[in-house]
């Protein structure tokens, strides 16, 4: 049998593979009481990388909320898991964007081949108005209000922007909605 024939290197592979696998599936091997594994786990526990600030920042960037503690824990575990990458020596190695990096990009001719399908596009949208997509009646980022500092004009506060941004309180309230 192949297994027996190669038992020598198999054993070596087995123990090496075992510790690797243990670390690779943090949290998965609950029934494995290998002390070596537990030690590894402790070594990897980071000083708290996940702060409230970071959570808020991520939620705003991703527009996805953690919802509850489980979500946060999931992130912490994910970071912990990813930290294993730092064991690998990648000196002198170029990052790989794509396995097709040696192939050159296909170029198409400047012909009009698409478009003119307004109906088809609007069909799948929940809210439309005439031939437009409709978004809630404010805009992200571009609210403007005037703080007149220019000395050429007599100061009068004019509200030139349309809509205020959601305030932090609003942000919190919609997070609470989900709980």
């Amino acid at each position: 049998m192949w297994a027996l024939r190669n038992s020598g290197c198999l054993c070596a592979a087995w123990s090496w593979g075992r510790s690797r696998l243990a670390r690779g599936t943090a949290g998965g091997r609950q029934t494995d009481q290998n002390p070596e594994w537990q030690l590894e786990e402790q070594k990897l526990l980071p000083q708290k990388k996940v702060t409230m600030e970071l959570l808020d920042h991520l939620e705003r960037l991703a527009l996805v909320d953690f919802r509850n503690w489980e979500g946060v824990e999931r992130l912490e575990k994910a970071i912990q898991f990813a930290d294993q990458l730092h064991e690998v020596n990648t000196e002198g190695i170029e990052p790989m964007d794509s396995v097709l990096e040696d192939r050159c990009l296909y170029l198409r001719e400047d012909n009009i081949t698409e478009g003119n399908c307004t109906k088809e596009l609007l069909q799948n949208a929940s809210q439309t108005a005439d031939e437009y997509f409709e978004s809630p009646p404010d805009s992200l980022q571009k609210a403007a209000f005037c703080k007149l500092r220019c000395s050429f004009f007599a100061g009068e506060n004019l509200v030139t922007g349309n809509i205020p941004l959601p305030k932090l309180e609003e942000h919190e309230s919609f997070l609470q909605d989900s709980n």
Partner: peptide, 8 residues
């Protein structure tokens, strides 16, 4: 209420 909250 706002685009941001709708998206979220």
């Amino acid at each position: 209420k706002s685009t941001e909250s709708m998206y979220a």
